[in-house]
Amino acid sequence: MEQEKQKAALNLSLVMGDNALILGHRLSEWCGHGPILEQDIALSNIALDLIGQARLWLSHAGKLQGGKSEDDLAYHRDVFDFHNFQMVETPNGHWGKTLLRQFLYDAWHHAMLQKLVLAQDEDIAGIARKSLKEVNYHLRWSSEWVIRLGDGTEESAAKMQDAYADVWPYVGELLQKDFWLKELDQWIPGFTADEILAQWWKTVREVFSQANLPAEPMDWLYRKGHLGHHTEHLGFILAEMQFLPRAYPDATW
């Protein structure tokens, strides 16, 4: 039982940590290229929050794996060992696509953290508490942007429809409860996968109704990023991210 619990905690830390790391990486690509200085700065703040959270989750995962460091996990695993959702590794596209992807992730992230703060495992509850403060703001900010662009000009509405077509096929993966999420039901009091999913749908429907976007049922079965099955994009992200530690294995930086 104890062993199973530890395995679930490790899995959870890797899913949360890898999602934060890879999404943070994508957002950091915007730095210096945003549509206006104020928003360049805003998005970098979110990237910093996410990479900060990734460090906490991966440090914890490393501890559970017998003393690996955050950098061991970030820089020395290959694609099949990463547990992030496929959605967060997809390319940024235009500002509207980045923000729609962000919103859909934030809605999930927020619902998850609200439950994870209840965990008896103090490490996990602690990271969740710290993250939740940040993600409260992320969700508010990305919701506002999705509404603003969805209900802005004709051009922006059309761009959001395109973004929806790009991103929506990836959301199913966030909503499957038959895999790792279900394990959590057993050891986090008050955690039920169903509630997370219901909360996600509620948030998304509220925002989408103001942004003039549909929320159609989606096919999701073949998206299994959290099990290490990724798109082609992740390999390129890792090639870039891990280049230095891989090229100079003896060096510390």
Binding site: I36, L37, E38, Q39, I41, A42, N45, W141, E144, R148
Partner: peptide
């Protein structure tokens, strides 16, 4: 000072720009 589309956004921008 800073630029924003409306007052609500100005508050958020101020948070991001002047309260880092």
């Amino acid at each position: 000072s800073l630029h924003a589309a409306d007052a609500a956004m100005a508050i958020e921008n101020a948070r991001d720009v002047y309260c880092r």
